[in-house]
């Protein structure tokens, strides 16, 4: 029997079932990744053949004020939104886990924003709510206060999007709730006998035991937030305005690649994004040994 035949006999059926996935990972992931790495070293507009320009794209990124702005905006969005969202999610999960009853109803109510949050419909709603004549200013008006147009003011526009992210804390909360159920109840009882208050119980028992869940939520939240697109696109009408204050990294990449057809430049941006996400994830992973506690 030939070598190939033998290999096929032992492994064929496995690879048969894996065929769609293998085709997918080759044609839709691996080859495109290689291609985009190559494009990132070229000047390419899709209509003329790419020309090799070495590291020029990468170098010009760092002197492109719009790119620097998009990095700043995204970093603020991630570093503010993700921790706030997790803090909210954990806080509410701990409250709901106190055995107060009605858990299923509360969980459903808090989850709804996560379900809808990524949609165009909600982005449109946000644009109204924080607009000049929007709901927020109407409410402020009832208290005799006068609001600004939060969406078209450069210093506040980004924070309306941060609020939108925090609003969607429900999905993380559901994960936290599942994690909290794993914490043995006896631990709390013995802590109570020792006279530990609720706050102390949280920091000495709850938090250490659910650090793996915090870790998971942190990684997933970060990866998701780096890639956010729809809210910024809809709220700013695709411009990233006002004054580029909501120019998310992905939005700038979209503008460069698909409205200006600077495909080489956009590819370089994509690779920088990949490297940044990898480094951020690696840092979280590396420090996790210090703060994530695995039972058993």
């Amino acid at each position: 029997m030939g070598k190939f035949k033998l290999f096929w006999k032992n492994n064929g059926i496995g690879y048969l079932f894996l065929t769609p996935w293998i085709i997918g990972i080759l044609t839709l992931t691996a080859i495109p990744m290689g291609a985009s790495l190559y494009f990132s070293f070229t000047s390419y507009d899709m209509f003329n053949a790419p020309t090799w320009i070495g590291f020029d794209n990468y170098v010009s990124l760092f002197s492109d004020p719009k790119w620097l702005q998009s990095v700043k905006v995204t970093v603020i969005y991630v570093c503010l939104g993700v921790p706030l969202q997790l803090a909210f999610a954990l806080f509410i999960a701990v409250l709901l886990n106190k055995g107060i009853g009605g858990l299923r109803v509360y969980r459903a109510v808090y989850y709804v924003p996560s379900l809808f949050g990524g949609s165009v419909a909600i982005a449109i709603l946000w644009r109204q709510i924080f607009g000049g004549n929007g709901l927020v200013n109407n409410i402020l008006g009832k208290f005799g206060l006068e609001g600004i147009n939060w969406i078209s003011t450069p210093s506040t526009a980004l924070y309306t999007l941060v609020i939108l992210m925090v609003w969607q804390f429900g999905a993380s909360m559901v994960i936290f709730l599942a994690g909290l159920k794993q914490v043995p109840i006896e631990l709390y009882e013995s802590a109570k006998i020792d006279g530990a208050g609720l706050v102390k119980q949280f920091f000495t028992i709850t938090l250490p035991l659910i650090t793996p869940v915090v870790f998971f939520n942190l990684v997933m939240g970060m990866i998701g937030a780096f890639q956010a697109f729809t809210p910024a696109y809809i709220v700013s009408g695709g411009t990233g305005g006002p004054l580029n204050s909501t120019l998310f990294y992905t939005l700038y990449l979209y503008q460069k690649g698909f409205t200006q057809f600077a495909m080489g430049y956009a590819s370089a941006m994509a690779w920088v994004l990949l490297i940044v996400i990898s480094i951020a994830t690696a840092i979280v992973f590396a420090t996790s040994k210090k703060w994530v506690y695995y039972q058993g």
């Binding site: 492994n11 996935w21 495109p32 990744m33 985009s36 890639q227 992905t250 698909f258 994509a270």
Partner: peptide, 29 residues
């Protein structure tokens, strides 16, 4: 199922979970 290179392929699958779609979207387009 058992087949050769399964652990490597599985690890590869896990990596794609974290891959931002932007690195593939331009060549895909």
């Amino acid at each position: 199922l058992q087949f050769k290179f399964k652990p490597i392929l599985f690890a590869l699958m896990l990596v794609t979970l974290m891959l931002p779609f932007h690195v593939t979207v331009i060549p895909q387009y």
